[in-house]
Simulated scan of single mutants.
Amino acid sequence: MPGGLAALLDDIATIAKLAAASLDDVSAAAGKAGLKSAGVVVDDAAVTPRYVTGFTPDRELPIIWRIARGSLFNKLVVITPVILALSVLLPVAITPILMAGGAFLCFEGAEKIIHALTHKQDLAEEAEELVEPGHEATMIKGAIRTDFILSGEIMVIALNEVAAEGLAMRAAALVIVAIAITAAVYGVVGLIVKMDDIGLNLAQRKLGATRALGRALVQAMPKVLSALALIGTAAMLWVGGQIIVHSIGLHPAEWLGLHHGFAAWLADVALCGTIGLALGAVIVGALHLVKPAKAH
């Protein structure tokens, strides 16, 4: 009996070790997949704060929470099962879908730059626009719709990074990526949109250093939001361009004789971003040509 108990305990220990190793493998796969999609994540975090512009402070976090729930539903219930099924039944479709998503990111990034150059209305003016009844539900639906596109790209990029793994490993990695990225993005977004309220609260305190910190936060937030928008746009162009050129077997950094290290990465960012901007501008121009033709 003691020998049987010892054997059972030994089996349990072995199973525990295998489970721990599997968790390590899943975590490593999820980390690899999540890191590759970081550029889209930055844009997701940069875009979302604009959906709570114009609402009273007490509605900001509830709106973000509803968008976050919609985002998680997009990733876990809709996108992940579809792309996992494709990876099994039609794996050759993953690369074209990835490239289509990359082209969309290039288009979005280029359109933002063109819009910024041709429209002078700034964020302050947009924030003063009247929020009409029913506007909250409309904005939430619009945010979730936009998130679906970005989430789809994030999850396809993530799947592409773990495509060589087994189905169970792929599924586990994608679930971890979906939950972790949603929590990270909307946690950061919540902090960003409440930062001015935190600053105002600190600015009303008695301690001089605290008041100064509060005023600095309030003054810094417009610049932070502008910087986030700029970083998000650059990230879209870089990731979109990189997806396109790498999917067709090109590595722009190698054109300059760079293969490894920070210099190669920086060259890849600059060249892929430039290619992404050029491709996006072509798509924007083509769409503007098609729209007048449809009108006739």
Rank of each mutant, 00 (worst) to 15 (best):
M1Q: 12
G4F: 02
L5R: 14
L8D: 11
I12C: 10
T14H: 11
A16F: 10
L23N: 09
D24R: 11
V26Y: 14
V26F: 11
A28Y: 09
A28V: 12
G31E: 02
G31K: 03
G34I: 14
L35I: 11
G39S: 03
V40P: 00
V41C: 04
T48Y: 00
T53N: 13
F55A: 03
F55V: 11
F55E: 01
F55T: 06
P62N: 08
I63E: 00
I67K: 01
A68F: 10
A68G: 04
R69S: 03
N74E: 09
K75I: 01
L76T: 11
V78N: 01
P81I: 10
V82Y: 03
V88M: 13
L90W: 14
P96H: 08
G102M: 07
A103D: 04
E108A: 15
E108L: 15
E111I: 00
I114D: 00
H115K: 08
H119F: 10
E132K: 12
E136K: 05
I144M: 12
R145V: 07
S151Q: 13
E153V: 15
I154G: 00
V156T: 15
E161F: 05
A164H: 13
A164E: 13
L167Q: 12
M169H: 08
R170F: 07
A172S: 15
V175Y: 10
T182K: 02
G187D: 04
G187C: 09
V193Q: 01
D196N: 14
G199E: 03
L200D: 08
N201G: 15
N201T: 07
L202R: 06
Q204S: 14
K206E: 14
G208Y: 04
A209P: 02
T210H: 05
G214V: 15
R215S: 09
L228A: 05
G232F: 04
T233V: 15
A234G: 07
A234R: 02
G241L: 08
Q242T: 11
I244T: 03
I244D: 01
V245P: 00
W255F: 13
L258C: 06
G261P: 05
A264I: 00
L266F: 10
L266N: 07
V269L: 14
L271I: 15
G273Y: 05
L279K: 06
G280C: 08
V282M: 12
G285S: 14
G285V: 06
A286W: 12
H288D: 13
P292I: 05
